[in-house]
């Protein structure tokens, strides 16, 4: 089951996702995480603790990135595991989000 921890600094919110980013995380991301981030200026998401993803999970990530971008919030995604990034690249997520999102 997916969990997340948030540490807030002045303008930057750090989010660490923990667990598989999959269909079971739909409510958590869409209903809880996204609304709580809309007040931030900069959001840094760490995927260090995410070993597996599924297609719904990537859709959630896309929704997260697009929603924050629409609200003019800068978002970065970091510490993506190699295996997971391979999946992202197959779907060309870096091209969709913009290469600057992945750090």
């Amino acid at each position: 089951m997916l969990k997340y921890t948030i540490t807030k600094e002045e303008y930057t919110v750090k989010v660490t996702l923990n667990g598989d980013l999959d269909i079971e995380g739909t409510e958590l991301i869409n209903d809880k995480l996204i609304p709580s981030l809309l007040t931030a200026k900069v959001v840094e998401v760490s995927l260090e603790q995410v070993p597996f993803v599924d297609s719904t999970g990537m859709g959630l990530l896309m929704n997260l990135v697009n929603t924050l971008k629409d609200s003019s919030i800068t978002i970065t995604i970091s510490h993506v595991r190699e295996d997971v990034f391979e999946v992202f690249e197959l779907l060309q997520l870096p091209e969709i989000f913009g290469k600057e999102v992945f750090v």
Binding site: D20, D22, F52, D54, T56, V87
Partner: peptide, 8 residues
């Protein structure tokens, strides 16, 4: 891919 779950 090892990190991909097709369960959904």
């Amino acid at each position: 891919s090892p990190a991909f779950k097709s369960s959904d």
